[in-house]
Design a protein around this nucleic acid. Structure first.
Lengths: 253, 253
DNA sequence: AATGATGTTCCGTATTAAGGAACGAGATAA
DNA sequence: TTATCTCGTTCCTTAATACGGAACATCATT
């Protein structure tokens, strides 16, 4: 165990027990280290917002970073449970596979899947990862993310053409994002895999951010334009219902 | 800035962006350090539950510790705002000073105060600290804490007698806790300061823990037994109302 | 069975973080 | 006001410590 890290984490523990905050000297005593050491540890923690210093008197207390981090942790625990019954219904109503995905690095991570018994088996699996730029779910998420974040996510990726329909430049993509935002759903027209189409809609959490999405996926033989038109509102409604349960408050329009 | 601490916190940042988790090798690459270094950092973080390792495949992801920490942070932001209007009313109804306190280390920290204009000035101030064992608020909080936690808190304190009424042994205190729990409020009969009496009630949060309390404080000349009997239900009701707004679900009895 | 990729452990070295002391800033008291 | 404390911050030297490389173990893939 590395000493300085352990000590830094110990400080956080002390601050948890003293929500009113502690001074450098007090912390140094509790840790049984020199004041300068405690000070250096605190400076490192403060730099990344794990602790904050009240201007006056240099009293250190737990920082807002923890709220950020906890959101990620709790939502990942909640989302699958919340979404389960709703995506099951969607799958039953359509007879197609429904996926629940999460933004993970610069990919989407498939965190749940419901597959109707009658469906022809399509290879897909929980834990699988997929690209953002050429999947319905990926585009649905990206379309609602702040532009600088989108740029950052796309920067780490080469937009390789999986099929002749794959969009391969950020410009084309951003163009499509406007359509997606206007309609509140995203298509994937064989952009990732030949013969596979899907309809996807983003899920928002209580911070109004799109970090999840659902999609209905099926072979083009079954997913005709007419059928899709029917599925779209169902998908959107299901996504919105999940969003609400995640604490999302739709902006009044 | 301490290198190892900064690196450890950087890892947490990467994991936030990859809620699906990352392996040691991936993390080492992102950090640009040797695998062994990343591994050591992760082990230190894991030891304190900041990251967790899924048994299979050693994929590291953010740990449950963040939920714990965030609770402390958010509640301390919330409680004052939530409690304000309610303790204002209590002060108006009684004409006495009302305090809102928070458990902080092995003391109580006064985080808000409402003082009716007509009240004789009693020295008291936000930011002040007070002992747990001889204040109404302190005892109200302690009475509902798990016994091992109480022991730990009292261990770091010498129970000095402020007045002739001060309880000075843990045994006496624990005896009184039973009464407090039976009645759901705590008295302070000149135990901390001669001539000052108060009625206090604990506040519970959504984890069912008592980390806050309120009290009505006044000079013994005004705080007669008859008057107190009237104030008790008001105090309890106010505390319960605050608890509910903090997300507390009273156990069905 | 062999190869490759992963996570984990060990160890010598040099980087790095620790502690002490000096400094600065504020508060308190004479 | 000035002097004295206490606290936070900075600097610098030293040696403790965390680093990286390599070896090992485990597992999946071919």
């Amino acid at each position: 165990m590395i000493q300085s890290v352990t000590r830094a984490l110990d400080i956080l523990e002390f601050l948890k027990l003293n929500p009113g905050g502690l001074g450098v000297t007090e912390i140094a005593q509790k840790l049984d280290v020199a004041k300068s050491t405690a000070h250096r540890l605190l400076a490192s923690l403060e730099e990344q917002d794990y602790v904050q210093k009240t201007g006056k008197d240099s009293i250190y207390s737990l920082g807002l970073k923890f709220i950020e981090m906890a959101e990620v942790v709790t939502e990942n625990l909640k989302i699958v449970d919340i979404a389960r019954p709703l995506i099951e219904k969607l799958s039953r109503d359509t007879g197609e596979i429904v996926h629940l995905v999460m933004l993970d690095g610069n990919e989407v991570l498939y965190i749940d899947k419901v597959e109707n018994a009658s469906t022809i088996r399509i290879y897909s699996q929980i834990g699988r990862r997929g690209p953002l730029y050429c999947t319905g779910v990926g585009k649905a998420i990206l379309a609602y993310l702040p532009e600088d974040e989108v740029d950052q996510l796309l920067a780490g990726v080469t937009m390789q053409p999986f099929t002749e329909y794959t969009l391969t430049t950020p410009e084309e993509l951003k163009q499509e994002f406007q359509t997606i935002r206007a309609n509140a759903f995203a298509y994937d027209n064989e952009e990732h895999e030949r013969g596979i189409r899907c309809v996807a809609a983003p899920i928002f959490d209580h911070t109004q951010k799109s970090r999840y999405a659902i999609s209905i996926t099926g072979p083009i033989t079954r997913m005709s334009d007419d059928i899709l038109r029917e599925y779209i509102p169902w998908t959107k409604e299901t996504a919105l219902a999940i969003s609400r349960k995640m604490g999302f408050n739709p902006p009044k329009s």
